[in-house]
Design a binder for these strands. Sequence first.
DNA 1: TGGGTCGTGATTGTCGACAGTCATGTCAAC
DNA 2: GTTGACATGACTGTCGACAATCACGACCCA
Lengths: 245, 245
Amino acid sequence: MSRLTAAPLHTPPFHLGEDMTEDDVHRHIAEAIIDRRLPPGTKLVEQNLATIFSVSRARVRSALTRLAHEKMVTVEPNRGARVATPSVEEARQVFEARRLIEDGIVRAAAARMDTDARAKLEAHVAAEADAHRRRDRHAVIRLSGDFHLLLADIAGNIVLMDFLRELVSRSSLVIAVYERPGSTDCSHHGHDGLLNRLIAMDVEGAAAAMAAHMDEIADSLDLSSHREDGVDLRRVFADILKDSP
Amino acid sequence: MSRLTAAPLHTPPFHLGEDMTEDDVHRHIAEAIIDRRLPPGTKLVEQNLATIFSVSRARVRSALTRLAHEKMVTVEPNRGARVATPSVEEARQVFEARRLIEDGIVRAAAARMDTDARAKLEAHVAAEADAHRRRDRHAVIRLSGDFHLLLADIAGNIVLMDFLRELVSRSSLVIAVYERPGSTDCSHHGHDGLLNRLIAMDVEGAAAAMAAHMDEIADSLDLSSHREDGVDLRRVFADILKDSP
DNA sequence: TGGGTCGTGATTGTCGACAGTCATGTCAAC
DNA sequence: GTTGACATGACTGTCGACAATCACGACCCA
């Protein structure tokens, strides 16, 4: 049984004919961003989305502002919304925060393991392996993040789970921008070793495995900052502008 | 100088005549909640707030939904918004999350201390002592929370600072609901000892002092759950309802 | 041809109005 | 006096329309 009455991790099957609520719009866009079907920088025009989902523009608008609060899209005044492209510094801070919170979560989860939690985790890891076998890239990405949220669910702290949910989403954006070209797809093997430690209720071992897993992900990125996203030309040539306004 | 270009901690002086932006409305309400001028459970009627701030109802509405995302108000469909009254379980989880994040922040801050950070912290503690001397309850509450946010600023991680900002706000609500009647007002002495450890760049000592400070706050609460807020009559008499539907 | 200016279409920001829903008070019947 | 139905008022939810702003291409001039 589920310990928490938290929101479902992903959108339930959607029947055409009913009109979508704001929550549905939010989830559909969020999932598309996390799956990387919507790459960073993509313009999100309100009217387009409204006609696609056949809802009013106002509903799309509030979904976008909510996504902006969650740092998945950026909104510039009078210039609309885009899928966020995290900076190098932001990427570092997201992973630093994630190391801290994942450590707290994995320790709590290790202490609360039981047969039910074990069954869920094993089933999830199996599903990950299956998605990997099927070469379903989107499913691999989504399930990889869900593993960590499942751990948070077992840990039993809704506040931390909400924080982690945001961090997992932002991590997906970071990976989309800074993934090293030759890196293997989202190492899911790290979850295996972690699961073994959890089953043994080895708190320190599980925490160490999680730390290693985080390092593994961070190492697959190229944060050497040569890829400075969104260079502001006005700032680069500020001195010239001063000379000849 | 400030390390981060984060949002200001509190509302800048507001000049009448200009019309408020949504951000202003949000900040004014948030501050009133954190200062406990708006106690938990207070109904927040959109039209009232709109006339008070002389803005349109839509603007108040979006400010309220943002406050709802930050868990400072609860919104029931068709029944409007109220200042949130956290449950006992939520209170526990907020403080558990806060222990974790404050630990990470204080360690980072201790490692990054310099003369500028020291000056800011000393000035802040002095301001806290002054507010305490003046018996300015609202200022004491606000400054007490700001001390922790200043620490997060020194730590230099915007992501963690945003998380902590939410946790500090929610802590204020928890204290408003569960404060033990005879407890002294928001122990500000804990900040003194913490500051000494930070100046010495004693990471472990600072972390221990922070942990003690968190315990101190938690001990001033009465979470024995006899004060179950918002008893649901239907749940209390669920068995009777089953017998005679 | 390069560069600057202006207009036009597209997109966002904001507001007021109306419909839907809930709470409260009134009144009649028992 | 109590209970139930009903009416009324207040509040929220939603949408469409209009204003403000921006991006982009056409046009003109040197």
